[in-house]
Every structure is written in structure tokens, then in C-alpha cells.
Design a protein around this nucleic acid. Sequence first.
DNA 1: CTGTTAGCGCATTCAA
DNA 2: TTGAATGCGCTAACAG
Lengths: 346, 346
Amino acid sequence: MVKERVTVIDIAHAAGVSKSTVSLVLQGSSLVNEATRAKVNAAIRDLGYVYNRGAANLRQSKSKIIGIVVNDLTNSFFAELAVGVDAVVQSAGFVQFLANTGEKIERQREVVASMREHGVSGLIISPARGTEAADLAPLVESGIPVVLVVRDIAGANVSSLISDNHAGAVAAVRHLIERGHQRIAFLGGFSDTAVFEARMRGYRDALVEAGMPVSESLIIGSAPSRAGGVTAVEQAMMLADRPTAALCFNDAVAFGVCDGLRARRLEPGADFAVIGFDDVIEAKTAVPALTTVSVDPQGMGQRAAELLLKQIKAGKAEPEAIVGSVRLVVRQSCGAAVERKREALA
Amino acid sequence: MVKERVTVIDIAHAAGVSKSTVSLVLQGSSLVNEATRAKVNAAIRDLGYVYNRGAANLRQSKSKIIGIVVNDLTNSFFAELAVGVDAVVQSAGFVQFLANTGEKIERQREVVASMREHGVSGLIISPARGTEAADLAPLVESGIPVVLVVRDIAGANVSSLISDNHAGAVAAVRHLIERGHQRIAFLGGFSDTAVFEARMRGYRDALVEAGMPVSESLIIGSAPSRAGGVTAVEQAMMLADRPTAALCFNDAVAFGVCDGLRARRLEPGADFAVIGFDDVIEAKTAVPALTTVSVDPQGMGQRAAELLLKQIKAGKAEPEAIVGSVRLVVRQSCGAAVERKREALA
DNA sequence: CTGTTAGCGCATTCAA
DNA sequence: TTGAATGCGCTAACAG
């Protein structure tokens, strides 16, 4: 049942005009007679013509397709990111190549090469671990706009969109202060990372901003894990002047903190406020009492796509470092999520 | 910094051969002299040549790209599905267009049209609600292989891949019987749906297979919701001869059953086995004690992609109805999931 | 084994 | 306003 591909020339023939006339109506040009336009459109419908974007792209050597490659599509964060990208990209009349690298740098090399061969006019990428600036060099040299999301790469001369850890910490601590907390701890994380430094600085700044003292004893590092959270909160509760709330390095730590609190017969959220950076994401559904600071993945995807489209339109791939918005989010109740999903698959 | 596109003719010139020779080495043809091949490859590397797949596609009027459109990429089920598709598609040297319809049928029309214009050589689609056979007709008529996943469409003359509800129910009930349960209830769901009918039939068949009686009083319908689960289990526990286990119509019902059990001071999993079809998916993380029957989304994606590729290779789009494999899965512990996610974003 | 020729389907000049 | 010619980058016949 494979029908012959019908081309502009076919419909030109059927409509009794030349193919360039057809081309004009296809692009909605205003300089074509209304009557002929109607005839052409009729022929298009009758013959079931479909525009061949590949040929058009070849001719004008530019495509309406962008690539998005993520390191773990299994992680719902990246799925949401892709949804955000898809939304704006679709609206702009583009389509997206999506590829998942599964954190494999070799896979990434392949898919990026493939996308380049396919002539993507821009690329959004959450690079696999270990990606180096050199890996992206061929792309930027050929003038293809690239925007990095989630993870930055030092020395890569491209735009990037990462979360604003400092602003997030400030927002979180303000949130706690507004609720009357006077002694707020910062728990978990290794102090030798840039991420830790940013979050910690936000924590300090927010306290200073509120005219509150910064007590070093309330800053307790640990492994950024659930177990680390347990030991950190235990140490905090040994203090003479115990905290009543904690900002945790990430949500894994926050879980551990909740565990530790329960071991002491304290109810997280009620007896002791705990708030964590949402690095782990999926865990959102697991601890109802937990408040998290997280970037909105879809929003990030949208901003990334907008940034990319702007660069594509501009022609010049002017690198532009942007710090993503970080929102303070109180987690969604489990019931609501379940209902939403149920409907989706009905 | 936009460099001129270097073409086969450039490298042919540089290597001192003709462009068709270059074309041959590009396709790894064996009928080209080893020495010239080396020269050509050197030129390719030196000039930074990138293959233009668009032009090649135009020439041979066939592309190495497949489309995948899902109704809700926000749902991790579909994200995993896309991962599965991506895996096999990448390995076959294809790339995938991914589009999310968000259950909007208009959006779906647009993206399907767009993909057609881009010349996808096949399409995997989880149709938006309300999609009709007519919506897919143009595709199949033009000879593009289509495989439907998750949701089937009556009258659409295409392959489809849906879960085997009957087999899943049989597997679940066998699972319970193996664990020594003698009185197993079937809880929740409206009996007028095809899905209910299939699951119920599997339940009955498994009991019969084991030589156990099918007691109508143990079959209790309800709304396929959490609340429905509560009422269903309450009714079940009023029976003179109480069940010790239940197969639930879906996981929302199963949650409700767990709720109802706890209200009666019974611990789900320990005092009473509950197992549910995993329609809701994300909820997997919420109830540790719950066992679910679910299709493996990645596996489904892989099978869909393989099926599609087979049809593409065959040239003929021979529709082929396939019932997806349904696996019995004991849900993953929360801790493991958290660790996995933490690493991913580190 | 290598070079020549002729399009794939479309957009873009230029004339008419 | 419309038609004729030209080429985007590549592959597929052939011919040498």
C-alpha cells in the first residue's frame, strides 16, 4: 500500500501552474492570486500532498529541529525537563531529537555526532559525567548554539542554565525565619564542593539579613546521604542549645534527619522543621512532612529552549551564562499525585 | 565563527579523488583501494567534514529517524518507555523525534503531521484519549509503519502493543496461591470495562487451574480509586469467611485496601497480602508493603521499537497485534531508589 | 577500482 | 503575478 510520494510538481501539474507558484502558496506568500491559491490548495488536499521538510532544509541549509540529550531520562527530573523543552519548541514549529545517554560518555559522543549529521540547529544538553569542554568544541566551532543544563562544564564556551543554589538557600532560610525559627541548623554535605559553598553562603546571608547570629556549631557537615543526615542531626541534638529547624544539604540528608528525629520521638514538620535541597527528586513522594527547595524542571526546560531559540534566531551563538530560577516548593500530597497518574493511564 | 560547510566535493578535491569515491568510503564499501581510503579519511579528519544525513535521506528517499509520541511524558511510565525505545533505536543507528501531546488531540495532530513532513520512517505512539482510527489513516496509507503502545485503537489497521491483563492476573493469583493463600478476593474496578473483564477472567482461571473454588462473594467491585479500595476491603472483611489476600483492580484500589486494613489494625503484607495492577505507576514509591503487577515500561519500549524496525526493514507495514508481556514485580525498596537518584544528579 | 552523469524535492533568483 | 533555470549535498547507476 505504499503510495508514490507526491511532490510539488505533481500538484503544480494538477493545479495547472508551475511549481514555484506552489512553493509560494506553501509559504503563505501574499503575492499569489487568490483564485490560484485556492486551486493549489485543493490539489494539495486531493492528492494528499505532504511537505518534504528534508528537501527544504537541504535547500536553505537550515533545519527546524533541535536536539536534546540528557544523561538519565529515567530520572523524572529530566523527563519533566524534556516536557518543558518540548512545549516551547513545538510552539516555535520545531521538533526535537531526544537522546538518552544513561551517563555513558561514549553514547553521548555518538548521539551528538548523529544529531550534528542530521543538522540540528541547536542543542540542549545535560552532559554525562566526565564530559569535557573539548567534547563540545566541534559543535560550537561549527556555529551550532548549545545550552548546557543542570551541569556546567568549565571552559566550554556555551550558555548554561544551572540552579541558583545561593538564592535557593536564602529563600529556604527566610521561609524558616518567617515561621518563627530562631535556631536554624545547616546539616550535611561535604564542605569542599562548589555546591556546598553556594548553599552554605546563602544560609549565612539569609541569617545575617535577618539580623540573626551565625553559630558555627549549627553547621554540621556529613556525607550527603541518608545515613549522613542521621549522624548530623544526632550531633545537632547533642548541643546545649538545640536547633528547632534545619536546612539540609540535599533531600537524602533530609530523609536521614527525619529518621534521626523519629528515633528521638520527634515528628518532622511538627516538632522540628526540616527542609532540603531536592537533588534526589523522585523521593518527593516518600516523605510527606518534608519541604524541599527545588528547581522546577519544566520551567528550566522552557527557559533552556527559549534561550536556545533566541540564539538560533540571532544566528550568532553568543554564549550566555544564566543561573536558573530556584523555587521553594512544599511537596505535593501523595493522594493528589496518585489521582493525576491514574487519570493519565485510564 | 560560523565555518563554511565542507562537503564531499571539498574532501574529494583535497584527497585528489572524485566525490563518488568519497561516498563509497563513507559507506564503508569494500570496493575501494586501501590507500585511497586512507587519503580520504585523512582529508575528512583534516577538514572536519560532517556527513549530511539530510541530503542522503533526500537522495534515497528514506530516513533513519523514527518518531515517538506519548500522551504524558510527565508520567514516568512513558519516560521509561521512551528510554527503552531510545536504546534499541540508537543501536540501530536511528534517532528519535520525541513529542509529548499532554493528552491534547490537537497537539497530537500537529506533531504527527510534523513528523510526517520530516519523513520519519516509522512511528510509535501512545495515543491521546479520543484518538480515532481516522487520525492515523493518512499515516498508514502512506505506508509508514505505526505501532500503538499502551492504548489500542479499534479499527486502526496497525500493530499494537498492550499489556496482557489476563496473564498478569493469572501470575498474580498464582503468586498468592504459592504463598499458601486459600481465600483470595478480587477487589475494585467497574465490571463493565474490557480491562476489568480481562483481569477478572485471569483471576478466575488461576483459581480454577489450582482446583480452588471461585466464590462470587469474594469478588467486590468498586470505583477504581483509593476510596473505592477502602469500601471494597471493608465489605470483604464483613464476610463470615474472610479472605487472607486480595488482587486489586489497580494500585489506587490497592492503596485504599491498605488504608482499610490499617484502620482495622491489620498490617498490609504481613497480616493480609495485597497485590494490585500498577496503572498508577508513580505511586510505586509510596507503599513499601505493596506488591504490584506491572508491565516493564522499558521492556515495552524496546519491544515496540524492535517491532517497528522489523516492519521498516520489511518495507511492508504488515500490522501485527501483540500483547505485551506483563511481569510480576515486587516493588523496589525506597532506599535503593533514593540512592540511585542521588548518584544521577551528583 | 575510480570518475561521470543524473537526479532526490524543494526554494530562490531572474525574466516574462 | 507566474514560469524557467539553478543548486543545496548526496547516492546510484553506469562508463572508463
